[in-house]
Nucleic acid binder design. Sequence first.
DNA 1: CTCTAAATAGTCCTTCCGGTCTATTTCTCT
DNA 2: AGAGAAATAGACCGGAAGGACTATTTAGAG
Lengths: 231, 231
Amino acid sequence: MEDVKDYNVHIVGSNRLDNELLHNFLEQSTNPSINCFLNDTFSHSIFQEKTEDTNLVLWDCKDPKRYDHLKKLGKHIPNAPERCYIACINAHPDHKIEKMAINIGVNGVFYENDTLSTLKKGINAILNGELWFSRVTLSATLSSFLINNSCHPPDTNIDEALKVAASLTKREREVLRLIPSLSSNEEISEQLYVSPFTVKAHLRNIYRKIKVPNRVQAIFWLTQNYRLLED
Amino acid sequence: MEDVKDYNVHIVGSNRLDNELLHNFLEQSTNPSINCFLNDTFSHSIFQEKTEDTNLVLWDCKDPKRYDHLKKLGKHIPNAPERCYIACINAHPDHKIEKMAINIGVNGVFYENDTLSTLKKGINAILNGELWFSRVTLSATLSSFLINNSCHPPDTNIDEALKVAASLTKREREVLRLIPSLSSNEEISEQLYVSPFTVKAHLRNIYRKIKVPNRVQAIFWLTQNYRLLED
DNA sequence: CTCTAAATAGTCCTTCCGGTCTATTTCTCT
DNA sequence: AGAGAAATAGACCGGAAGGACTATTTAGAG
């Protein structure tokens, strides 16, 4: 009865020699609880079955065909089970692959000219749930998320937005935050243990204050101004 | 008539000696186009006036009061003009500040025990629009964004979601993507140059296929499944 | 203690939304 | 050329949402 959680690393690539060498290195020179497997085709089962183990697929990108296949895989990756990771190996030292990879949910990229110690460090980081990309890529991607999630379009006045957000009462902020996840005023009223009439009253005040005509636009306002709403 | 874009670095802190030393270092040992200023209080004007220059505020966090003040500043930071950055200096080597900082829109954190060469490298990175945080923090923050934006709650079936997404026609995907930003069926119909009846017909099919009762839930579905919708 | 803002609850009316059903035209694939 | 899917357009109905307005109770600031 084993309680030790294993790390399974699956190398997927067609270059037999290179990958056998890598296999050899991973089995011998890294974390002793790493089990390494070598495949020339990708077994979907890794990304579908839930398991206690941690799985990492190392996707050899040297072959252009396999590189294209990765893009198709993209729709599945973000929905892989917990502790199921995928990283590219043998990538060309070209930033484009990093952006594509990070966007489709790949957890890291290793390059042809990386050192073995980088590879070792990176694999352990990914097995630990981290991402392994260049600082520039991580920074740029995160920046774009932060901008999308909080910055205002250039035509809006931040002072105005702050004033508006501050004018919302505690209860109004509460109602506003419930709009996206609940279908109807009825549901909101049940959630808050008040009458649907009360919810309607709050909503009317909210719409007037944030100057939107309906709940769809209120959701939009909320995504733009979420940060300003904190109590 | 100068066309050279300048970098203005504003050190904000009360420790006169340390900060004068830093001021000295930045003026003499870094990028020649850096102008360095020393303040013991924060001038809001930096974050409000638009300018051609690149501005960086180095916020001394050694003083607990100033650390708290930073949090209050947080609501303004994400809405600062372009090329207007803020970073913490003299932070305790403690991850908590990084997470707080990255969440309120700070562009980087430097620690008490960082080397001068790290500081130099980091300041140049930030002036260049990058973020300067530890790889672990960048990775963790980005992961949380990626999860929020694309992963499905554990109870949903990804195969089912893929099937559903694939069953949407091109026009239906188009209509679905317009829901969050447009108020009414009328507006969507104007955008697509079709009759409001057509939009209603598409919406009915969409709701049936993705199994939601109304546009609010459709927006929710969309945020969860945006990735699956790409053509 | 008092005054005010917030939270609560309601009416009445209009508009828009979503469900069911039908029908025509335009693509697309074989 | 013909079948089938997709896109278009519409009628009809019930219900939910939103606007304008009123009113009572509760809570917090001074």
